[in-house]
């Protein structure tokens, strides 16, 4: 029982599993493709993941509250289109970007209001707004792209600052803010509490509605920021950005050990999940150059990471 007790009470088995898996990927890379691990290569490949990582921050917290936000791609599209259209009408791209983020945040508030006031399950709300937001972006822009942003704005997405891509600094800044909000204020424990038992929270005077509203608004803000970085990186604002990104984000978050049933998971696991997904994806396409293989490996990896976690912690958790 002694060892079993330790095994069971240790809370970071999933993080260990992820670290081992990341190590396996790196070991394979070291053996077969040493160039893959070089710093300049890793730095440039990392530009593919920062927007997804930014979206993972609010998604982690929302999933911890047993919610979900499928509309992130739609909010990105709306932000990009706002940014593009305002820029086209002569506004400075920086002002336009701020307005775009504002619009996306408002979309997030809208999600939050429907979830908290009308109490419809977030899956349904965001399933509907996912289509509604993207449709609005298509309708407003008539699906036309806006391109040729000034180079200074492009720096936001393509530039390198102190050895790291600019979007990486955006992510790390946001991660720091989120982590301190979760770790140092009551908001963190509120999130977990809401995810475990919302009814009990209401009796315990936890401001459930304000927590949820804040989180969905944060998700909107993060989507806006991700969209701005994307537009700056690819120099194009169009209504199709972030199509299908919600599944990638959710995959990364649940790979990171965040329970879809709420109340469990942490930011560290999420970061490792994102890293594992990113490195695997890049390594597979680096090594084999067969895109369809990527899908198979990613799908199996997702299941495998959780399966390993289950085996390592027997009888610790049940299915729901």
């Amino acid at each position: 029982m002694g060892e079993g007790g330790i095994v069971r009470s240790f809370r970071y088995w999933h993080e260990i599993v992820l670290l081992v898996l990341i190590g396996v990927v790196f070991a394979f890379a070291q053996m077969f493709e040493p160039r893959f691990l070089q710093l300049d290569v890793q730095r440039e490949l990392s530009t593919h993941i920062w927007e997804i990582a930014i979206l993972c921050l609010p998604m982690t917290l929302i999933i911890i509250t047993a919610g979900i936000d499928l509309s992130v791609g739609g909010m990105m599209a709306l932000c990009a289109v706002t940014l593009g259209m305002l820029f086209q009408r002569g506004l400075s791209p920086w002002v336009a970007a701020t307005m775009g983020i504002g619009v996306a945040t408002l979309c997030g508030v809208l999600n939050g209001l429907v979830v908290t006031r009308i109490r419809v399950h977030p899956l349904i709300v965001t399933l509907a707004t996912m289509a509604a937001f993207r449709g609005a972006a298509e309708g407003l822009s008539l699906a036309r792209p806006v391109s040729s942003f000034p180079e200074a704005f492009g720096w936001l997405g393509q530039g390198v600052w102190w050895g790291l891509p600019v979007p990486a600094w955006c992510f790390m800044g946001l991660l720091l803010l989120t982590a301190s909000a979760v770790g140092l204020s009551r908001w963190g424990s509120y999130c977990y509490a809401v995810g475990m038992n919302p009814e009990a929270c209401r009796f315990a005077a936890v401001p459930v509605n304000r927590v949820l509203l804040g989180l969905y608004a944060f998700s909107g803000f993060a989507s806006g920021l991700a969209a701005v970085l994307f537009v700056a990186r690819r120099n194009t604002a169009k209504a199709d950005i972030g199509m299908g990104i919600e599944l990638l984000v959710i995959t990364a978050v649940v790979t990171g050990g965040v329970s879809i049933f709420g109340g469990r998971g942490n930011l560290l696991g999420m970061v490792l999940g994102v890293l594992l997904i990113h490195e695997t994806r890049e390594f597979v396409s680096w090594r084999w150059s067969r895109d369809e293989l990527n899908f198979v490996v990613m799908g199996l990896l997702l299941i495998l990471s959780v399966l390993l976690h289950r085996w390592l912690t027997p009888a610790n958790r049940n299915t729901s």
Binding site: V17, V20, V24, F28, V297, W311
Partner: peptide, 10 residues
Amino acid sequence: LGLILVGIAL
């Protein structure tokens, strides 16, 4: 066992 599985997947 887990490592073997990863090996198989790859």
